[in-house]
Nucleic acid binder design. Structure first.
Lengths: 213, 213
DNA sequence: TAGATTGTTAATCGATTAACAATC
DNA sequence: TAGATTGTTAATCGATTAACAATC
């Protein structure tokens, strides 16, 4: 099971989708076998590409029967690093922060939300998801004690630089930024700017194109 | 200003990012001019590609000075269809639905949230964002009266098929699905499955790879 | 003018697809 | 065996980058 055989970003995204698709499928139908076409068709892609991806991470298929889900899933978990547990905190206990704090879907990816932080003193102590909201002053200690390596930034746009700085000072190395302002960070820090509106904007754009013919 | 000169998906995404970047920039600095490198550098891409994209949508630059933001923004708006107003409803008045209902960032993309719907009778009448929560029975009429063409599905996984069916019956043509179950829809209906966990999973994966060397 | 930037062609690079032999 | 599916090489396709002339 080779790791890191030059995985590019597009391939990682595809592996995630296979993983997501197969774990859903496993819950419903009896799991067992999938063919490359069985994976490819529902996500509107070519089956050759699925076979290539799976070969690249060292999963073997069986001619005439396909792949065994029970072999594919752990292989993807291993390659994508879902077996190494990662911990994340939420900074910004607003509506979106609350929604993410209560979200159940992170666990299968090896991610745990360990704390929620907010600058407003009157929010401290309230419950959000499984966590009690804590003041920002508690962040650094919490992050080091719980070995937190990711922060989810759900603060207003104007507060995001400050929140990011606090997270970085606390030793956090990856930021998931939901504020509608792109974040520039020092070398070595990972950032993902989420731009939530873009998802809907793309749909809207697609509609407009369709109308235009 | 030519429209639809074979715009592919990747290019649309890039145009969205330029638009997003330039409208933010316009608020802060004095707008005026941007060079292709000024756009490309912050988003870690090649400046030739920016020039190509802008040329493709019919925007001209000025040697030695760059492009005028005031010309670029409307051109992108026009090509991406942000000038044709689109209306969306939210189905599922939970935490995520509430966060999106209150989100201010859709307007610049020509998108308005006109209503929030939920299956639970006791939620009807509550305020969420600018809207009063309505029962599902009111959806079809609302959609036709307000010419709604998009639905944001923030219902639990088990309810998403039903919510999608209701939206489609109401004449809605595009679905933005946040339930962690991929949605299959009839020909002619647009769907975007959002898979919120994947964003964080990608960060986590990137961290794991970095640790592995 | 010198210099910076655009615009565009040509070259490269990589990802996707097609084809088909190998396998069970 | 016949048939379905994988595995893999070769061909294609398209997107990105490099190079450089045109422009102000």
């Amino acid at each position: 099971m080779k790791k890191n055989g030059r995985l590019n970003h597009a391939m990682i995204e595809r592996l995630m989708h296979y993983y997501y698709f197969l774990s859903q499928r496993l819950e419903e139908e009896d799991g067992g076998h999938v063919t490359s076409a069985g994976i490819a068709r529902p996500m509107h892609m070519d089956d050759t590409l699925v076979r290539k991806d799976l070969a690249a991470i060292g999963v073997r298929g069986y001619p005439r029967t396909g792949y065994r889900s029970a072999e594919v899933l752990p292989a993807i978990r291993c390659v994508l690093g879902f077996d190494e547990m990662h911990r994340a905190v939420i900074i910004g206990a607003g509506r979106l922060g609350g929604a993410l704090a209560s979200y159940r879907g992170f666990a299968p990816f090896g991610i745990e939300i360990t704390g929620v932080f907010d600058i407003a003193p009157h929010k401290a102590g309230l419950i959000m998801g499984n966590c009690q909201i804590q003041p920002m002053s508690a962040l650094a200690r919490h992050a080091r004690e719980r070995k937190v390596d990711m922060a989810i930034l759900t603060v207003p746009r104007g507060a995001v630089e400050e929140a990011a700085d606090a997270a970085i000072r606390a030793g956090i190395r990856a930021l998931w930024n939901f504020a509608s302002a792109s974040l520039e960070v020092p070398e070595g820090i990972l950032v993902r700017n989420e731009h939530i509106a873009l998802g809907l904007a793309e749909l809207s754009c697609e509609l407009a194109r369709r109308d235009a013919g």
